[in-house]
Simulated scan of single mutants.
Amino acid sequence: MIDPGLTLDRQAEVYDALLGGKDNRPHDQELAAELLRIFPGAPIAARANEAFLRRAVRTLAKAGIKQFLTLGAGYPAEPHLHCVAADVAPGTRMVYVDASARVCTYLRVLCQAPDVRVIHQDPRNVTAVLSDPQLREVIKPDVLTAVIASRVLHFLTDEEAVDLIRALRVRLAPRSLMAFSAGTSDGLPAMKVDEAVQLYTEHVGLIRLRTKRELLGLLDGCAMRTPGLVRTYAWCPFGSDDMTLAFHDVDTPQLYAGLVGFSSLWR
C-alpha cells in the first residue's frame, strides 16, 4: 500500500527514485514502481531531462551569462549545475530555490561554494525569491539572469504558470532568459496519461501535462530562441557532443524543452 502522505519533499524524491538515486524513501520507490508499470520508459525521460539541463547551462555560460537562478532545484544530480557553469566560466553565480526544507538542507551540504546560495522559498513567489537577502549577495539586479526551470511548470496550474513567467519578465533585468522543460501528453495514449496523472495527484500533488500548443500559450510575450520548443533530448542548439539518446514510444513519457528571452532586445 502506497503511503498517501503528501509532502513537499515527494516531488523531488519520486523524481530521484526514477533516476535511480539514493535521496528517496521506500514509499517514494513504491510510487515510482507504480509509475514505471504505466510508463516503463520514465527513467529515460528523467535522464534526458537532466542532460538537457546541463546542455542548457553550458550553452548559456558559453554565451556569457554569469548569474543563474534555478527554481524548483530538487535533489541535485551530478555534475551539479553550478559546477557545469563554473567549468565553462569561472566566477559564475548560482542561486538554488526550492519549497522543500529537506531538499534545501541537502543542497546546502552538497553545494557549498562562494558564489552559490540556497533559498528555502516557494518558487511561485517570485517577489519573495528576488527580495531574499541571500540572493542579493550574488545576483545583481541590473545584470541579465538565466532562470532554470525544469521541475516547475508541470506542477503549476495555468494561472500560476502565467503569473510566474510574467513576474520574472517584470522583475528581472532586461534581456534575461529562461531555460525550461515541462511534461507533455503529446503522442501518448490518453488512458496511460490519465492513469499516471491520477496516481501522481493522489499520492504527491498536482501535475499538469500540457500539449505543445498549451505550453506555447503560457509563454505569451516571450521570445523563443533556437532550436524552439522541442523534446528534451532534441534541444541542442549548437551540436553539443553530450547529446542524450532517447526514443519516443508509448512507454516513454516526454518533456518539451525550450529557451525564451524576456525581452525582444535579446539576439
Rank of each mutant, 00 (worst) to 15 (best):
residue 210 R to A: 12
residue 102 R to G: 00
residue 138 V to E: 08
residue 45 A to K: 11
residue 27 H to R: 09
residue 236 C to A: 14
residue 60 L to S: 14
residue 167 A to D: 15
residue 166 R to N: 11
residue 185 S to P: 00
residue 21 G to F: 05
residue 194 D to N: 13
residue 237 P to L: 08
residue 238 F to H: 14
residue 98 D to Q: 04
residue 76 P to T: 09
residue 69 L to M: 06
residue 5 G to N: 02
residue 4 P to D: 01
residue 261 G to F: 01
residue 215 L to I: 15
residue 15 Y to A: 11
residue 257 A to Q: 04
residue 12 A to D: 02
residue 21 G to Y: 02
residue 217 G to E: 07
residue 139 I to K: 06
residue 43 P to F: 10
residue 52 F to P: 02
residue 150 S to F: 11
residue 125 N to T: 03
residue 211 T to P: 07
residue 20 G to A: 07
residue 127 T to F: 04
residue 109 V to W: 04
residue 235 W to I: 13
residue 56 A to G: 03
residue 197 V to F: 05
residue 120 H to Y: 00
residue 244 T to S: 12
residue 25 R to V: 03
residue 258 G to S: 01
residue 65 I to F: 15
residue 40 P to S: 13
residue 17 A to I: 02
residue 53 L to G: 09
residue 216 L to K: 14
residue 1 M to R: 10
residue 99 A to Q: 12
residue 103 V to G: 03
residue 219 L to N: 04
residue 145 T to R: 01
residue 192 K to E: 06
residue 122 D to C: 07
residue 87 D to S: 07
residue 100 S to Q: 07
residue 42 A to D: 08
residue 222 C to F: 09
residue 145 T to V: 14
residue 17 A to N: 04
residue 27 H to E: 09
residue 90 P to R: 00
residue 161 A to P: 00
residue 39 F to W: 13
residue 264 S to P: 01
residue 12 A to N: 01
residue 98 D to N: 03
residue 12 A to E: 02
residue 19 L to D: 02
residue 38 I to A: 10
residue 121 Q to W: 04
residue 134 Q to I: 00
residue 124 R to P: 03
residue 239 G to Q: 07
residue 221 G to K: 02
residue 115 D to Y: 09
residue 138 V to I: 13
residue 1 M to S: 13
residue 242 D to H: 11
residue 162 V to R: 15
residue 246 A to Y: 06
residue 13 E to Q: 15
residue 215 L to N: 14
residue 140 K to E: 14
residue 160 E to M: 03
residue 110 L to T: 04
residue 76 P to I: 11
residue 118 V to P: 08
residue 139 I to W: 10
residue 41 G to I: 07
residue 207 I to H: 01
residue 185 S to A: 15
residue 132 D to E: 12
residue 24 N to L: 03
residue 106 Y to I: 02
residue 257 A to M: 05
residue 219 L to H: 04
residue 125 N to S: 09
residue 64 G to I: 11
